[in-house]
Each structure stands twice: as C-alpha cells, then as structure tokens.
C-alpha cells in the first residue's frame, strides 16, 4: 500500500477529531444526548452519490434524518434492504415524513438512458429504471438533450419509489393512523437546491401527499 493511499485515511481520521471537538465545544451535552437514543422525524431515501449528503445539504444536525442511500434511490418492491429500513423507521422510530430524493446528473439515471452493459449486478439493479425509460420513450424523445432526459428519468424514478412505498404495509398503516406523509424531491447538484415534485394521480395539498 502506497503512502499516498493511506494519507486519505489520515485526513478523515483528523476530520473526525475536529468534528468531535467542535461538536462538544458548541454543545457540551451533544454526545450525551445522542447516546440516549435517536428520534428522527424524517426518513431520507436518497442516492449514494457523494455530492448529495443529506444532512449537509438540508443543513440539519446529526439525529434529525434517518438514512438509506443506494444507487439511484431505488425502492424495488422485493428489496429487503430498503424494506427493512422503511419498517424500522416507520414502525419502530415512528418518523413523520418519508422523503425520496433524486438528483440532477445522476449516474444511475444517465446509465438508464441506454442499455450499455454495466455488469450483471448493476444491470439487474438498474433494470426497473431502464424499464421506466422504455415506458416513457415518447415523452423522453421530445426532450432537448440527455441532461434533460436523465433528469426526467430521475423524476419518474422518484415517483416509482413513492408508489412502492405507498404499498408498504407499515407505511399504509402509518399514513392512516398518524398522518405520515411521503414526499418526492429532486436535488439540483449545480445549484445546491432541493425542489419538491408534485405528486401525480393522488390527492394532495401543499405538496403533501395524503391517502384518499
């Protein structure tokens, strides 16, 4: 292992020391409080992309957002990993909101614009996103360029994930019993800003989706 490779590790170990020190300076009880447990209000399902760190871009503090991040913020109905996160967050932590956040310049959405072979693992994972592209071909063909097309695919994919979430038994129950709400968003990497997606085909008020 070359020394430059290990320098990268020294850097985040040092970064962590600064984080620990600054956090205690700002609030001497911070770690004591966090030690007691967590009660986040938001479950964030986002992309693994390094440019969209949820707590930073939402200017939130540790403890506020429960997080699942994967390639292209997909929530396949048969995926145990995301299903476990949703179950734990909704049933056990009782979060009040579930956010699915896609983003511009998404490598996954971009790869889904064509059928290049990315290896079997990624091909399988991105299959539903590529299916979305096929389903919406006419609409996508009218868009001016690939950036616009991959953004539209990212939006459709967020809606798709929300559809799956609405059918999750714990989510359904929480919507009816305690007003859990679901939100679709797109993060614009070039502007640093979040945009709320309007829900389609469901009753909504002020961008909040509610069960019929």
């Amino acid at each position: 292992m070359s020394s430059s490779i290990l320098d990268a590790i020294d850097r985040i170990v040092a970064g962590n020391r600064v984080y620990a020190q600054q956090t205690s300076e700002q609030d001497p009880n911070a770690f004591k409080e966090w030690n007691k447990g967590q009660s986040p209000e938001v479950l964030w399902i986002g992309c693994a992309d390094s440019r969209v760190p949820e707590t930073t871009v939402c200017n939130c503090k540790p403890g506020e957002i429960f997080v699942h991040r994967n390639i292209a913020n997909c929530v396949p109905a048969d995926d145990i990993s995301s299903a476990s996160v949703v179950e734990y967050a909704v049933t056990h932590l009782k979060v009040k909101k579930v956010v699915v956040c896609g983003h511009t310049k998404c490598g996954g959405a971009n790869a889904a614009l064509a059928d290049a072979d990315l290896g079997q693992t990624l091909n399988t994972w991105l299959h539903p996103v590529r299916e979305l592209r096929r389903k919406h071909k006419t609409e996508l063909d009218k868009l001016p360029d690939d950036d616009a097309r991959s953004l539209r695919v990212a939006e459709l994919n967020v809606q798709q994930s929300l559809e799956v979430l609405r059918l999750h038994p714990a989510v359904k129950r929480a919507i009816n019993e305690r007003g859990l709400s679901l939100h679709g968003m797109i993060y614009d990497i070039g502007a640093g800003q979040l945009r709320l997606l309007e829900a389609s085909g469901v009753k909504k008020t002020n961008g909040l989706w509610s069960p019929n």
Partner: peptide
Amino acid sequence: SDSRIPAEAVTGLEPGEMFI
C-alpha cells in the same frame, strides 16, 4: 441508517468526497 451518524459530517468531508 442511524440518524446520528451522517458520514460526511463526522469525517469532516465536503459534498463530492464520499460515496455513501
């Protein structure tokens, strides 16, 4: 997924530096 450990914050990294 625990809300108390945002990876980028606890390692002092900027957006763009860590795939998560």
